[in-house]
Design a protein around this nucleic acid. Structure first.
Lengths: 215, 215
DNA sequence: GCCTGTGAAGCTATTCACAGCT
DNA sequence: AGCTGTGAATAGCTTCACAGGC
């Protein structure tokens, strides 16, 4: 099973490879991809081992082949749907952002409590009342949830998603979610990110600062 | 110098401690905080070593004392300002989210290209034209930038922020930023997060799945 | 008895370094 | 000559396990 962080970087590599293709590159060297992704060349080669598509010495990797190989690792065989819960500012930002971006993975249902939003189609995605979350997610066979509700609601929503059969959650609420074994949670904690950056910005501002870091 | 990940978790612990205080707890054990934060008790104790405030055996840690100690590590001596670039859906979500949340760290200037937004006060934060970014950020002595612009603009904006003296950037654009040594970048890559969750959700859905993980 | 503080062990992730290929 | 693929080495992070204190 591929390592946790490797899977994340493959997602990034694929995006960079698409951009390379668009600018006319048919092949790429590990050190080029590395500098685009801000990692070392050795890291790139190590990550690409799980993809299996070999590069050729001298010429590097074939970009289309790599994109294809990464897709074989990352993408579901059939299109995978995701449910977004909480159609506030952040939820809507995510809806626009992912709109039509990945053919194999898209947000197929949104949920909110606010009556004004129910029934509307927000950026191409239908908004349902949160009371129906469990039924609709289960019926549609959705396995991925995105939580963009206030902290106070996040755990209840996560519980409902899990009951509906969801196996992975991206959590934007500022509290950790507690889920049973077998459910994968990625906590996108923007408060943590900002406080971390503020901290290290201060260290770097001081003359004694450690070498720069990139994450 | 405290470890990278420890700094992030301290931010989380502090939020959980504030919640504990609100619900009447004056003391806390490492295992309680651990289960709230979804880490091990040993991890909590290890992290708290950098804070220096000792707990007492039998009674645990004093919540107010810990909050204070974490503040001594994380917070700037004076209030620290941050600049947000890109007042789109995501930018506005962040403005509402951080509004009045941390007294020592707040978004003090927003920037956008769209003429309609210039001069407006969005969720309590004044919006300036992006042409003035460098001047205003430098004048205000802002050291932290938040990038919520489209991928195509992100690197230019980062360059401008760095020229203006910014030492740390939270990057929400879907491309890595290249910055000189001494500038710390945290890349919040939501595409990566979603694809990662979709991948592991699929693994967990299969009977062969690895044990659940939490991030 | 139960909890903290921490050296030591264990694990995961990254980097080194070089053999092999073209 | 330059690049890939990968075993071995290193670095960083987490957990173990237990001494010390209330």
């Amino acid at each position: 099973m591929p390592a946790h962080r490797t899977i994340g970087r493959l997602s990034l590599y694929r995006r960079l490879l698409h951009a390379l293709l668009k600018s006319g590159n048919e092949t790429v060297h590990s050190h080029q991809l590395a500098s685009l992704a801000d990692v070392t060349a050795a890291q790139v080669r190590r990550d690409l081992m799980v993809v299996g598509r070999s590069g050729t010495p001298r010429r590097g990797y074939n970009v289309r082949d790599l994109i294809d190989g990464i897709g074989a690792v990352l993408d579901a065989p059939m299109t995978q749907g995701a449910a977004l819960v909480g159609a506030g500012n952040l939820g809507r930002a995510l809806l626009t952002f992912f709109r039509g971006r990945r053919p194999k993975l898209s947000i197929t249902a949104a949920f909110d409590v606010e009556p004004a939003k129910i029934g509307q189609v927000i950026y191409g995605c239908r908004c349902y009342p949160v009371e129906e979350l469990e039924r609709i997610v289960a019926e549609k066979g959705i396995r991925v949830g995105i939580v963009t509700v206030p902290a106070s609601e996040a755990q209840h929503i996560a519980d409902a998603l899990v009951r509906a059969g969801v196996k992975g959650i991206v959590n934007f609420a500022p509290v950790p979610l507690h889920v049973p074994a077998g459910v994968y949670v990625e906590h996108v904690d923007v408060t943590m990110s900002l406080e971390k950056v503020a901290f290290f910005a201060r260290q770097n501002g001081l003359a004694t600062g450690p070498p720069a870091e990139q994450t």
